[in-house]
């Protein structure tokens, strides 16, 4: 196993550090920002960023865990003969589903689920679910047939083939799916503010309404840093597993 180059770690660590600073001590950034943009309503900006970050991360974790668990389960089930016919259908569904814009899904859900946590959670779940499902199925499909054949010929049963061969070999693809799912959810959770979900999006939406640039940035900067940090963390993870998993 080769070592992953240090800059990756440094960048990831820095991004997380910046994110923490941005939610814990936004006043530092704010002092710089007031020099650049004209502050509007200071009193509105006095919301606990830590509280908002908690809410934002909480819904992302809940929805992503749900979508990862369910997507992985379904993808693994397609490895069994009785489900293999569904594989193509699921793959099509996953690709198709992702082409529907987030806002459209959110808007469509409001009449059924109302405003607030529920429709947002559902939209997040759907969006997070599809990339994990698609990447996992495709990860399985890229495993060379002769490897699967060797595994069978050595007397591995279906379960052993999945746990010892297919899942480890598909891991980089699965991790990529989880990464896309998390990033999507971080951004969808922001848009969720339009249907009443509290998170960094709330600040952005309120900031736009009140024409308050600082407030918009107070939501936009931390959420961007969070997305970047998560992305770079997963890139490291994927590299770590790809090095041992791909023979090229």
């Amino acid at each position: 196993m080769k070592k992953i180059k240090q800059p990756f770690f440094i960048v990831t660590a820095l991004l997380f550090a910046f994110f923490l600073i941005s939610i814990l001590r936004f006043d530092i950034i704010e002092n710089v920002l007031v020099l650049l943009v004209k502050p509007k309503s200071f009193f509105l900006a006095r919301v606990s960023l830590v509280e908002i970050a908690k809410q934002h991360i909480f819904i992302v974790i809940i929805s992503s865990s749900l979508s990862i668990i369910i997507a992985l389960t379904i993808a693994i089930l397609t490895r069994f003969p009785f489900m293999s016919d569904f594989e193509e259908f699921l793959l099509g569904l996953a690709t198709f589903g992702q082409t529907i814009p987030t806002v459209a899904i959110l808007a469509l859900l409001v009449p059924f689920l109302g405003y607030g946590f529920k429709p947002a959670l559902f939209a997040l779940f759907v969006y997070g679910f599809l990339p994990v499902l698609r990447n996992t199925i495709e990860g399985f499909n890229t495993i060379p047939e002769e490897i699967r054949e060797s595994a069978r010929a050595m007397g591995m049963n279906r379960f052993q083939i999945i746990t010892r061969v297919e899942l480890p070999l598909a891991l980089p693809a699965i991790l990529a799916g989880i990464r896309i799912s998390l990033i999507l959810n971080i951004s969808v959770a922001t848009i969720g503010a339009t249907v009443g979900l509290s998170g960094f999006g709330t600040l952005i939406v309120n900031g736009i309404r009140g024409d308050d640039t600082i407030m918009i940035l107070k939501g936009a900067i931390p959420v961007s840093l969070l997305a970047l940090a998560v992305e770079s963390l997963f890139i490291i993870l994927e590299k770590r597993f790809r090095l041992s998993a791909i023979s090229e």
């Binding site: 002769e146 490897i147 060797s150 010929a153 050595m154 061969v165 791909i246």
Partner: peptide
């Protein structure tokens, strides 16, 4: 049966991980 039969193929089929 399979565990009692050694099997070697052209592409080797070694597990890359």
């Amino acid at each position: 049966l399979r565990r009692g039969i050694g099997y070697v193929i052209q592409s080797i089929g070694l597990f890359p991980h």
